[in-house]
Every structure is written in structure tokens, then in C-alpha cells.
Design a binder for these strands. Structure first.
Lengths: 138, 138
DNA sequence: CTGACATATTAGGTAAATACTAATAAGATT
DNA sequence: AATCTTATTAGTATTTACCTAATATGTCAG
């Protein structure tokens, strides 16, 4: 428990972008991530190399793919995000604010703990944005 | 709103230590913080200089004092901490885990937002540790 | 197949945050 | 005054997070 590999906010952001594009026909290119994050390609390359070191990403010939571990970390973060958002909105916070805050903490909290909260608040099927909260794990 | 000066986790930790000692007869010395944080004095000095730049601390002749702004930031973080802890424990999380998580996020979230939550959950007077949750602001 | 253009990579540089050791300065205490 | 404890300075290293400029690698039109 809580043995998740530490990532930074930027690494989180890149991971999310990679995960969000996972079902698309064409893989995300460096320039795409570069555009989405408003950072220059060399900066992104650097970021991706760190994600590679952490085992979340594999790269060859300009292609970047999430590894199994990367996919499951991505899913955990997204799920954390939606559950935290739900919890905050349920407790009086404005949706936009909740989303912004969640972005800054969803990758810092271990998924197991968030999962407990999910159970406790009655396994809501959707976050306040209307997006599905799935239980990804087997 | 949300115009709080960005601080890092280490800066937060030092701020908390300074705040916790505020009522004591003798001021906290560098070595004290050094001991409490298990970091060498030069590292702490560096940290304090950054807090000074951010206007949270004033230093002269080895003495370190929180400024007005430092005190109020300290209080906001402590309050954030206790409210977040309360929220998490109320929603099924183990107290120790909640405390640990709260430590990592209490300084990242603007106090106004947390205050909304506080109102919504019925202004509990104590956190799960039994410590007072006060409304410090006028 | 060959330029031209787009994209990726390398190289090299900067800055902030986080640490350290070793040396020096300043205070306090005996 | 000598000693001991603290504080400070100087110098070094690593990680994250950026950049520009140069080079390499594709790719696609003709």
C-alpha cells in the first residue's frame, strides 16, 4: 500500500495526455504533447525519458506508448481525480475549483485510500462532470 | 481568492514548526528546526531565506520570527489540515493515513475553498485528533 | 529518387529547490 | 581567554523544469 512511484505534476500531466489519446488510431507525437502542454519538444522529451525511467512509458522511433504499469497508473489518477472531485462538490465546493484542486492532488494520494472513500460515499457512477467513475482493477 | 503565495512541502514543514513554537518562551533556533526536520543547518538556513523572500519570516542574529503574514499562512495551513483530515475520516479513511495525506496537500489548497467545506460539514469544532478547529480570521 | 518540410533528438545552457561537507564567524560559558 | 556551540558562507551535487540552436531522421510531393 502507498508504494506508488512518486511522480511530479508535470509527469502527471504528460501521463494524462498519453492516456487520453490511448484509443485513437494514431499515436500521440512529441509535437502533440508539446502543443497540449505549451512546452517545447525538448522539454517534453526530457519528461518522457523520466516517465520511461519510472516504467510508465516505452519509446522507440519517436513513438511513445504507455506500458501496462503506465496505463494502470493513468487510470488510478483519473479515478482519484473524479472521486476527489465528487467528494469536494458534495461538500459544497464549486465544480471548477474542485477540478483545479483535484488536478493538483490526484497524483499525490494513493489509490487504495481514495478507493475507500469511493466505497464510503456510495460508489457514485459519475463525477460532477458527468464522466464515468469505473473500477478499473480486476 | 487563490492568490496565496506558492510554497513547497519543505517550506510548509518549516512554517509549521515555526508556528508550533510560537507560544514558547525561547525562539526556535536553527539547530532546533534542523533536528526536527532531520536536515543540516545550512539546508535549513536556505529554506528560511526562501521563506523570508516570501515574506513569511524575519531573521536577525540567528533569530527567526514569523511575520504577520507568516502567522496567518501558518494558521490557514493548520486549519486546512484539520478540516481535510476531518473530511477524509468522515468518509471512511483511516486517521493516520488521513493525517499523512493531509500533510501533503494542506498547503496546496486555497483556504477559502476549504472554508466552504468547513461550513458545509457543519463547522466541526475538533479534528479527528481532537484538536480544535478555529476560525482564525476576523 | 530527391529536395523540402516536419518532426525528433542532441547538445548545451539557465534557474529553482533540495541536499551535503568543510570552513569560518560569532556567541556564550566556564 | 579558551572552549564549545551555533550560525553563516562557500562550494558541490542532483533533480526538475525550462529554453535555444543545431543536427538527424522521416515523409511526401514531384
Amino acid at each position: 500500500m502507498s508504494d506508488e512511484i512518486r511522480i511530479t505534476k508535470k509527469e502527471r500531466d504528460a501521463l494524462i495526455i498519453l492516456g487520453n489519446h490511448i484509443d485513437e488510431e494514431f499515436p500521440v507525437r512529441l509535437v502533440d504533447i508539446s502543443d497540449e502542454m505549451s512546452l517545447k519538444p525538448p522539454t517534453i522529451l526530457n519528461l518522457l525519458k523520466r516517465l520511461e525511467d519510472k516504467g510508465y512509458v516505452e519509446r522507440e522511433k519517436g513513438m511513445t506508448v504507455l506500458t501496462k504499469s503506465g496505463i494502470s497508473r493513468y487510470r488510478e489518477i483519473v479515478e482519484n481525480h473524479r472521486i476527489l472531485e465528487t467528494l469536494m462538490v458534495k461538500n459544497g465546493m464549486d465544480l471548477d475549483r474542485a477540478c483545479l484542486i483535484s488536478e493538483n492532488i490526484d497524483f499525490l494520494i494513493d489509490h487504495e485510500s481514495i478507493d475507500n472513500i469511493f466505497e464510503k460515499i456510495g460508489k457514485p457512477s459519475k463525477c460532477p462532470h458527468g464522466r464515468k467513475i469505473e473500477q478499473f482493477h480486476e
